[in-house]
Nucleic acid binder design. Structure first.
Lengths: 220, 220
DNA sequence: AATAAATTTTAGTTTAAGCTAAAAACAAAC
DNA sequence: GTTTGTTTTTAGCTTAAACTAAAATTTATT
């Protein structure tokens, strides 16, 4: 059984890998809120355990074994998030934190039972893909709303931010996964975007838009 | 936030206090599966934190503050057990272990939500009382079936053992909380007991009976 | 290319929780 | 009421995961 700490580091590396090509110990230290030295130590330990590869002064990558563990943790996390929402009525801004604590402590049986309760779901409340038991990840759009084109219709896929405040803000605009909307206007130079969501006009900043992933909708 | 370890010790002391009047560090060490020295160390730390009182070479008692914490943990544990059974279909022999892991990691919100889901329940799947939010404990019979009298009707209140094997055995006899049965015969000298449960005759040992708590039923 | 700045690693400490072995205190037996 | 045996505590060691400060390496600047 891996320590909670080890699991947290693996998950952090996994998440950093999704974005940045190379993950430095410093990136990791920041994400984990520990000193750079602590991150280095853990990375060396992970390498020792063959869960990561580390080239000094360069960066870290998860090995296949490490990735497998990361996917299990992410699966736990996202299943829990959805379960908290669907079964216990949590709002989407609160599920992350609770799942964060629980993800390390549920058994395989628990995982299976909530998975069955939820009908083997593909996405969590924020639209993030839930890795399947065997490590397959449902496809997701990698198109940020910030790169979308005026005058097109889109469907919200995913909000890639977990801060409660941000989620409440976005939710207040009606922008939940699977919601359809139209991008009416988009100012140049990272300016604001105007959307029509369910008949209402909403203006959001470029920064916000960059965290929303969408796919083109066949306009109705 | 108390460490998991501290919480586990507090809970162990609480449970030992329920039975034995005085709790020695050795009792505690056995219950916790640690060396006597480790138990002594922790007890001193708890005393330091004003969660327990310790008189050297004598024993430990929880303070009011310590008891309050114990009750919270026990509440978490028993609510979880019932939730796992009611909401997720766990059998009663498996709920203990899962709850044991989760009890330290659920938030107050989680506690409240499962409590509401369960309708503010009083007893867990084994008939153990669930302390209320404010620390009140539902009444329970302290009469063991081992001390019961021939020819009377009883209702199962509680099974005071958490080992899966034992619970499966007892469950196989049909002896769940709230089940009514009649004590047909009872051999002297800690001999076996004969019961009629739902029309069927069952013979159980004294040792088993001593772990079953019952109350007299007004015979129908 | 040489030096300055930033990043990463190494070295050595700290804390929590465990351990063993030895010492101290208590209980029991003669 | 000593002596013997058990229980409890003390002392000192180990491991995991953090830390700071110093050394090493890489990157950036002139």
């Amino acid at each position: 059984m891996l320590s909670q700490s080890i699991e947290d580091y693996i998950k952090a590396i996994y998440k950093l890998q999704e974005h940045n090509t190379s993950v430095t110990t410093n990136d990791l230290a920041k994400k984990m809120n520990v000193s750079a030295a602590s991150a280095t130590n853990m990375v060396k330990k992970l390498a020792e355990m063959n869960l990561a590869e580390h080239t000094s002064y360069k960066g870290v990558t998860l090995t296949e074994a490490g990735t497998k563990i990361a996917l299990e943790i992410v699966r736990h996390h996202r299943l829990l998030e959805l379960y908290l929402q669907q079964a216990l009525g949590y709002t989407w801004d609160k599920v992350h934190e609770e799942a964060e604590h629980l993800e390390h402590h549920i058994s395989e049986e628990f995982e299976d039972r909530i998975n069955d309760f939820l009908g083997n779901p593909q996405y969590d409340p924020h639209g993030a893909p839930i890795p399947s038991r065997d490590g397959t990840i449902p496809t997701i759009s990698k198109d940020s709303l910030a790169d979308a084109d005026e005058d097109n219709e889109y469907i919200m896929q995913r909000v890639e931010e977990e801060s409660p405040d941000f989620l409440r803000y976005v939710g207040g605009l009606g922008l939940f996964p699977n919601v359809r909307f139209k991008l009416i206007a988009k100012e140049p130079f990272k300016g604001p975007l105007t959307l029509r969501v369910d008949g209402d006009m909403k203006i959001i900043g470029h920064e916000t838009a960059s965290k929303l992933y969408v796919y083109r909708s066949e306009s109705a």
